[in-house]
Design a protein around this nucleic acid. Structure first.
Lengths: 126, 126
DNA sequence: CGGACTACTGCAAGTTACTTGCAGTTATGC
DNA sequence: GCATAACTGCAAGTAACTTGCAGTAGTCCG
């Protein structure tokens, strides 16, 4: 995999924002620094980065496919349905383990996604 | 909401199959009993049923939106990434509880969605 | 019943996001 | 440098989803 300007920019953007970005958002941020980059280039670059394990793909209900820098530790989010604030959660916080699923179903888990919505402590008080 | 032939058929199919079906699959099954039903009709019918709370929408990574009968008890699915077979899981199987999230974050959870993908026992053998 | 009202439907076309073909460009290894 | 094959921009192609429209058919009165 060649070290091209597009690859550098896509990687930089994902590292900088440290959250899942849509292809659209990625493209816009990349274009701020190199306007002639095409949508299809960003598309193929994230595809390559994902195949190389440097980027992780995250699918958000309603929000379509998104991509995040794979070095960020695996985690989930709970979003406050009133104020929109979000808090990170890891599997341990949720009591989740792939072993447990394996014991219950026999499936070998290779991907999971957990989305939570609720009311944050601040909003509960008011 | 009127009780039309299309609505009845879509409801019947979802009740009968008791698993998440894509728009495509729904359309095919409905057409077996009433061939002139259009894709767009099925699309609008599930939309209406969802708005009425009679159908629940489930989003599967890679596989797009699916719909299932909402009276089925709350559960999640693990889908085999090779053969597409799915198995139901409830929160207890996953060790999940909203209480646990509350303890970790202070959030009062009012909605959660969990999607799993892996290799089923059969496909692991081959 | 029967007619009026309007939700619902089929068809076809529109939209959107994603994907690919192609010819020109540019990293990379020698 | 130079060859070569990966990469790129552009434009066009898919596929799934969504909508406009004119006709159809549930439902609600009377």
């Amino acid at each position: 995999m060649r070290n091209t300007r597009a690859t550098q920019l896509v990687s930089d953007v994902l590292r900088t924002y440290a959250r899942p970005l849509s292809l659209q958002e990625l493209h816009e941020h990349v274009q701020e620094r190199l306007p002639r980059v095409a949508h299809s280039t960003v598309y193929r670059v994230v595809g390559r980065l994902e195949a190389a394990g440097r980027v992780r793909r995250v699918d958000w209900r309603e929000r379509g496919s998104r991509y995040e820098w794979a070095e960020l530790p695996h985690h989930h989010h709970i979003v406050c349905s009133l104020c929109g604030r979000s808090v990170d959660l890891d599997d341990a916080d949720l009591g989740f383990s792939e072993e447990r699923v394996r014991a219950a179903t026999g499936f070998l888990v290779d991907h999971h996604s957990i989305e939570l919505e609720g009311i944050c402590p601040d909003c509960q008080r008011s």
